[in-house]
């Protein structure tokens, strides 16, 4: 690549090069127009956080009015807390299970059985959250499958979906149910790509199964794990809107109302565009900072980041 650039004739200025490539840029134009209209324009619209929305005419500047409103509104603290707790459950507490699942999968000796586990466990990833909510509401209802299993063990029926003390755990377990298979592919492919001679050498040295996992498999998984973890942190203030939106009901709403459901309620349903945009802006900026921050820290500590 570098060599080519040196060999290029000097008289080919930037402009000439662009002119020669004009057909290529023409091919890219529709995509660029899409991003400008549906991505850049909304980003410009985010200035609304500092302006009062008016359907017609100019938006008057109001400074930090909406930010002050957000932080002084009585429900906001709870919403923030819900968001952080749900994200903690989904992105941190659940995280080791993806690695455990990948290790178990790689340890299964029967090819047919492993394939069966993979085919079944990847499927939920492709179902919409609406469908998943429908499946879970059915399975967790009073007459549903889970309560029937509980009754075999002589336990009382529980209406899980409206149980305030359980709903956050349900969100976490459901997240695992949906993505355990698919999201652990990255770990699984890393494990099976480990050089077989390493295992052989370890076995000759008398290493047991657990020692092999501890000293060969886990170190190999550090890089994908760090990458996944940092990317997850970028979603920390999202807490998985689609899931919460579809699992919410009046009985449990106070426990799982998160930033994005709040934005939807005040913005789309309530028409308070400026307020909703201000929340989005906080979310977007904090999300970016989290990714950048953890990337830099991780690079310092382990020498590995996302890029």
């Amino acid at each position: 690549m570098k060599k080519n650039e040196v060999e290029r004739p000097v008289n080919r200025s930037l402009w000439n090069r662009l002119k020669n490539e004009k057909l290529l840029y023409l091919m890219l134009l529709p995509t660029l127009i899409y991003f400008i209209i549906f991505r850049c324009w909304p980003i410009i619209n985010m200035r609304l956080a500092f302006f009062q929305f008016k359907a017609k005419g100019d938006w008057p500047f109001v400074g930090f009015k909406y930010f002050k409103m957000i932080f002084s509104s009585p429900g906001f603290e709870q919403i923030m807390k819900n968001t952080l707790v749900i994200s903690f459950l989904k992105y941190i507490l659940l995280f080791p299970f993806f690695i455990i699942f990948a290790i178990i999968l790689s340890e299964i000796r029967s090819n047919g059985f492993r394939k069966y586990v993979q085919v079944v466990s990847y499927l939920p990833h492709f179902l919409s959250w609406v469908v998943i909510a429908g499946i879970w509401i059915n399975a967790l209802s009073l007459e549903g499958g889970l309560n029937q299993v509980l009754s075999i063990f002589g336990m009382k029926s529980i209406d899980f979906m409206t149980d305030k003390s359980k709903i956050r755990w349900i969100l976490m377990i459901c997240e695992g149910w949906r993505s355990l298979g698919w999201d652990s592919i990255i770990f699984y492919t890393t494990i099976i790509a480990i050089d077989q001679s390493l295992y052989e050498a370890a076995r000759i040295d008398g290493a047991g199964k657990l020692q092999i996992i501890r000293y060969i498999v886990l170190p190999a998984l550090i890089t994908p794990a760090v990458t996944m973890f940092i990317l997850n942190l970028g979603f920390f203030l999202n807490a998985g809107f689609d899931q919460v939106f579809n699992f919410s009901n009046a009985a449990v709403q106070s426990r799982i109302d998160i930033l994005d459901t709040y934005i939807y309620r005040i913005g789309i349903e309530g028409g308070q565009y400026s307020l909703a945009t201000a929340v989005s802006l906080i979310k977007g900026v904090v999300g970016m900072l989290l990714v950048l921050g953890t990337h830099i820290i991780s690079k310092k500590l382990t020498g590995k980041g996302v890029w």
């Binding site: 324009w41 619209n45 913005g267 909703a276 945009t277 989005s280």
Partner: peptide, 13 residues
Amino acid sequence: MLFDPGTVPEYLV
């Protein structure tokens, strides 16, 4: 890809 402008700004567009 990384920066999500949010629901309302897109809605207005």
